[in-house]
């Protein structure tokens, strides 16, 4: 019953099928043309991809083969907590001014990336404060700036008023991170990273890497600020020496008395130091010993020594060191 298709019918059919092929080809071509912004999210959580060709100044620090993964982000004290939620207080208390951060990746590998944080802390002192109080245990010192160390996946250093962190997503990028660090240091000449207080700590028994600057609230006392501390190990006992250069001798004296009163209020009791130096105060608190004295503008002492003798030994060494420095000037 079916009739043979006419020739024209076949031709028309062929033409229609050809048209379908053309449509399919057109759609295949069309699918590769699109603006990725529309239907993908940029990798950085909340940032718009930077316009192509716009170079951030952090990008200049990169070794070859590295490209930006995200645009440069800048944070002020108002929104720092958006970036480092929880830790912002630490930076803000130390005089934080600005954070610039950016992620970079190897141009050929998406998973190999690192993030650079440059915290402008306003002064070397402030930068050192955040550097030293966050110092990771088990880290290795690095010969980059006076204050620099690295861990398996990160590099931390102070340079001028900047505190810099380079944090990698994986281990084994130490060389790249160091290269970035060196570029950073080279491009930004600074006066000196030296903080005068550091040299005041006696070398003997000192754990040199432990020198830290507590910007505020040192030892739980709200008025103790700008305190340098250093760990000492004397005869197997750990303790900390501390010192702080105050604006004037009277200031130092006042603060020492306030701290002394604070310790007594919180359960401490005076102990006879047994030395002939009347300005030295020794306090026993919760079976630990605190030692406080003032020398000129310097408030100094020992924190949480396990025994009276150890506290006195370190205290007196520190006292003599300060005297020597005075005499040599």
């Amino acid at each position: 019953m079916a009739v043979q298709p006419e020739k024209t019918e076949t031709l028309v059919g062929m033409a229609i099928l050809a048209l379908l092929v053309v449509i399919a080809a057109g759609i295949l071509m069309r699918q590769s043309r699109y603006d990725p912004q529309w239907f993908t999210m940029s990798r950085s959580e909340h940032e718009i991809p930077q316009a192509a060709g716009e170079l951030s100044h952090l990008q200049e620090l990169l070794p070859d083969g590295w490209v930006p993964l995200t645009p440069l982000e800048t944070f002020s004290p108002e929104n720092l907590s958006d970036k480092i939620n929880g830790k912002a207080e630490l930076y803000l208390a130390a005089g934080f001014q600005k954070l610039e951060s950016q992620r970079f990746k190897r141009s050929d590998q998406d998973d190999s990336w690192l993030e650079l944080f440059v915290f402008d802390m306003g002064s070397t002192r402030n930068a050192f404060a955040v550097f030293s109080t966050q110092r990771r245990t088990g880290s290795t010192p690095v010969d980059l700036t006076r204050h620099a160390y690295q861990t398996e996946n990160a590099l931390f250093f102070v340079h001028g008023r900047d505190y810099v962190e380079v944090i990698a997503a994986e281990e084994g990028l130490a060389d790249e991170m160091l290269a970035i660090g060196r570029n950073f240091v080279e491009r930004k000449p600074v006066q000196s990273d030296e903080l005068s207080e550091q040299s005041l700590f006696p070398r003997k028994n000192l754990n040199a890497e432990s020198i830290a600057l507590l910007a505020s609230d040192a030892f739980g006392f709200s008025r103790l600020n700008n305190i340098f501390t250093a760990k000492y190990n004397i005869a197997g006992q750990e303790m900390r020496a501390f010192l702080s250069v105050r604006p004037s001798g009277a200031d130092a004296q006042q603060l020492a008395e306030a701290y002394h009163a604070f310790l007594l209020e919180n359960g401490g009791s005076d102990v006879d130091s047994g030395t002939n130096l009347p300005e030295i105060k020794l306090i026993e608190i919760f079976d630990l010993y605190e030692l406080i004295f003032v020398h000129g503008r310097v408030l100094a002492g020992v924190h949480e020594a396990e025994s009276k003798d150890a506290a006195l030994e370190l205290g007196l060494t520190l006292y003599r060191e300060l005297q020597e420095v005075d005499e040599s000037q």
């Binding site: 379908l20 399919a24 069309r30 699918q31 590769s32 043309r33 699109y34 993908t40 999210m41």
Partner: peptide, 27 residues
């Protein structure tokens, strides 16, 4: 059949992303 499959394909790829089986530039 061609247009029905094409239609289903369009519905399937209407998801967020850049893979060939995601939205990309599929019309």
């Amino acid at each position: 059949v061609f247009f029905l499959l094409l239609f289903f394909w369009f519905c399937i790829v209407s998801t967020f992303g850049e893979h060939w089986w995601q939205l990309r530039g599929w019309p």
